[in-house]
């Protein structure tokens, strides 16, 4: 059992090394997520956010604007996940058995 998991780990590590050789280098400004347009010609989200964040929401912190304005519904989901975690802890530990 332990040997099988070790072999699986080594194989998975080799797969990770092989896959990471296809990634763009660390900090490469021409990486696919940093471009203005993707290979298919559609605009990339990050460049659009950087260009329009201050004009759309009058605040210079782009991360906050993306978090609360462009992806506000996503953040609502995350908040509900955190709240659900609190409720689950309450139900597991404080409920009288």
């Amino acid at each position: 059992m332990r040997k099988i998991s070790l072999i699986a780990l080594v194989l998975f590590g080799a797969l990770l090394l092989y896959a990471s050789s296809g990634l763009p280098g660390h900090g490469d400004p021409d990486g696919p997520s940093h471009r203005e347009r993707s290979r298919a010609g559609s605009p990339v989200a990050a460049a659009h956010y950087i260009r329009h964040a201050q004009g759309d929401a009058a605040s210079p912190n782009i991360v906050t604007v993306v978090l609360a304005d462009y992806r506000g519904f996503d953040t609502l989901g995350e908040t509900v996940v955190v709240l659900t975690a609190g409720l689950v802890c309450y139900l597991i530990l404080r409920r009288s058995p």
């Binding site: 400004p29 997520s33 940093h34 203005e36 989200a45 990050a46 460049a47 956010y49 950087i50 260009r51 964040a53 201050q54 782009i62 991360v63 993306v66 978090l67 992806r71």
Partner: peptide, 13 residues
Amino acid sequence: VDPAHYINPLPHT
């Protein structure tokens, strides 16, 4: 504002 001056905000978010 030029996207080359700022790192990608999306993974940080």
